[in-house]
């Protein structure tokens, strides 16, 4: 129980049907692991009256039905967990390879990123495709992964004016974050490439390819390979 004492959990009211528990400050892999492990444990044996379990960077939101449970009961339920034990139960998390065609019409902002970093576009691609990125959370739009682990050289501010439509599959950078737009949506991230994969397929048995806690690696592909993979995706 030692860990819990070191960093007290903070409870916050999110209206009359939501409870947020905060596990720490800022964006930190250890804090995020704790969020996910508790989320996984709660999901395994959800208490009566809980209808949503939503892990994010450093906090977990429980949405509950007040006529079926009491917030005090949920606090007690969550606080029984010792995260040191839970970490093993939450995994194992998988790594998902995401093919990306960088630059050209798929990545209109790659030059901006290269210029900001003082690198060639080839070097930007090499560095962006090098790490395994941790999925801290999924949100904003269906399947949008917020990834940690971007090479510091590639940090680039958001666009001054967001685009009305960012095409489906676009891979972007916003400051120290990188992510993928699973559906076409407005957005202000610097777009450097696009994946042919369908990241959100509501009618597929599993609509998503990954969840928070999984890892993503980007695999650079040529426009020809992109077209071939895209055709395959569209057929399935």
């Amino acid at each position: 129980m030692g860990k819990k004492q070191e960093m007290p959990w903070v409870w916050r009211l999110a209206g009359d049907t939501g409870l947020i528990v905060e596990f720490g400050e800022g964006i930190d892999p250890a804090v995020n692991a704790r969020v996910r492990s508790v989320a996984a444990a709660v999901k395994k044996t959800p208490p009566d009256g809980v209808i949503e379990i939503i892990p994010t960077y450093r906090s977990l939101l429980l949405v509950y039905e007040p006529l079926k449970t009491r917030p005090e009961k949920l606090v007690n339920f969550i606080e029984q967990f010792d995260t040191a034990v839970l970490d093993e139960d939450a995994g194992p998390f998988k790594r998902v390879d995401i093919p990306v065609c960088y630059g050209k019409e798929f990545g209109p902002d790659i030059e901006t990123v290269a210029k900001t970093a003082g690198l060639s576009t080839e070097e930007v691609i090499k560095r962006h495709a090098a790490p395994d990125y941790l999925i801290y959370m999924v949100g904003f739009t269906p399947g949008f992964p917020f990834l940690g682990g971007l090479d510091e050289k590639l940090f680039t501010p958001r666009l001054k004016t967001p685009r009305m439509v960012v095409p489906q599959g676009s891979v972007g950078i916003a400051n120290n974050q990188t992510g993928i737009y699973p559906i076409a949506s407005p957005g202000g991230w610097q777009i450097i490439g696009r994946t042919p994969l369908t990241l959100f397929a509501p009618r597929r048995e599993n609509p998503f390819l990954y969840q928070a806690g999984d890892w993503i690696r980007f695999i650079p592909v040529s426009p020809e390979e992109y077209a071939r993979l895209k055709e395959k995706e569209d057929r399935s």
Binding site: T17, I20, T56, R58, L61
Partner: peptide, 9 residues
Amino acid sequence: VSEPSMPGS
């Protein structure tokens, strides 16, 4: 740090 919102937030 981004966190979930609720209807009514």
